[in-house]
Amino acid sequence: MSIQHFRVALIPFFAAFCLPVFAHPETLVKVKDAEDQLGARVGYIELDLNSGKILESFRPEERFPMMSTFKVLLCGAVLSRVDAGQEQLGRRIHYSQNDLVEYSPVTEKHLTDGMTVRELCSAAITMSDNTAANLLLTTIGGPKELTAFLHNMGDHVTRLDRWEPELNEAIPNDERDTTMPAAMATTLRKLLTGELLTLASRQQLIDWMEADKVAGPLLRSALPAGWFIADKSGAGERGSRGIIAALGPDGKPSRIVVIYTTGSQATMDERNRQIAEIGASLIKHW
């Protein structure tokens, strides 16, 4: 067993022997301040990774656009098919120029040779490549099948209805392509620590998230040296922004954090800054 596999296998073990965790309302004060600064709703939840206990939450059962955070769930569904012998990570998928959609920095470079399922998941999570996500959605049967996968996990809230990039439209009061912070946090925890996926697939999923290259201005910008984070960000229309993450000190994750916002007129930089400040408060009061 590799060191990384050992780390993920012992996530519940280490967490069980940690000192009790206590909620700190100071972080919620910052979440509410972010709402004021952005002029928009902000949803927040913080779960203990081992027990699933909610440590703090704000608007945990209000719907927010998922945006690209759905790509972690998508690759979880792909990995479940791999575990069941219905898919192979090494299978190569070929596609054409007509398949390319807006923001496809990886797939646009491989029109000639195609990409493997493993490479597509890596591109979808680490670079948020939209064509990679659409190609992977095709392998599982489309958005409705991802929703069905989530329902089978016990998540009857999260739903995907459309493809990239239309799913980022974020129309107010439109339930399409949305989740709730509580539902997303619980589902992410199941994917990373539950028995739904094999140990190898859980490790692969967290490795992809740990290698995320496009979430630097968010929670990662607030992390002290030595902290662990595996995350996936999302951005959408109407001032929408979000991030889902597993993080913790001492090089291992111990909490799940989900943050979503929508309806702001603020710039992307300002949305990023507010999420980073929430992260800084979380870490300060850990």
Rank of each mutant, 00 (worst) to 15 (best):
E237T: 11
I93K: 04
D231I: 04
R59W: 04
I140S: 05
A183N: 09
R241T: 05
V101W: 06
S264F: 04
S281W: 07
A133V: 02
G114P: 03
A123V: 07
L120E: 01
C18V: 08
Q4S: 13
K53C: 08
D250E: 14
N168T: 07
T112D: 15
R7F: 09
P165C: 09
N272S: 05
T126Y: 04
E166S: 15
S2H: 15
L120F: 04
G263W: 04
N152D: 15
A15P: 07
K252M: 13
M66K: 00
E108G: 12
L196H: 15
K284E: 15
D269R: 11
F58W: 14
R41Q: 10
S201P: 03
T107A: 10
P65Q: 03
R255I: 05
D174A: 05
A225Q: 15
A215F: 03
F14H: 04
I283P: 02
V8Q: 13
A230E: 01
D161M: 05
C121Y: 00
P65Y: 03
R273V: 10
S51A: 08
R189L: 10
I278P: 00
K213I: 11
A123E: 04
V8R: 12
G154Y: 05
D33K: 14
C121V: 04
R91W: 04
S122N: 15
L73S: 08
L197V: 06
R91D: 05
T107C: 09
A23V: 05
S68E: 00
Q97P: 14
L74S: 03
K190S: 14
N152A: 14
P217R: 09
F13K: 04
E175G: 10
A77W: 06
F22V: 06
G239T: 02
S104A: 08
D231L: 04
D174V: 04
D161L: 03
D113M: 10
E62H: 08
M67W: 01
E87I: 11
A222L: 07
F6P: 06
D129N: 01
F6V: 11
A132R: 00
P20N: 13
L167Q: 04
M209F: 03
R202P: 01
T178E: 02
V101E: 09
I140P: 01
D99S: 10
Q265N: 09
G242E: 01
E87F: 08
Y103W: 15
A16C: 14
L10G: 08
I140Q: 06
V21C: 15
M209I: 02
N152G: 14
R176W: 07
A182K: 14
R59D: 02
K71Y: 00
P172V: 12
A182H: 12
A15S: 15
R162P: 01
S281M: 11
D113W: 07
E87D: 10
I229V: 10
G234K: 00
I229K: 02
W208M: 08
S254P: 07
E166L: 14
T107G: 05
P217L: 09
D113C: 09
K252Y: 12
G248A: 03
S240R: 02
T131A: 10
G85N: 11
R255P: 00
K53D: 10
L137W: 04
A84K: 11
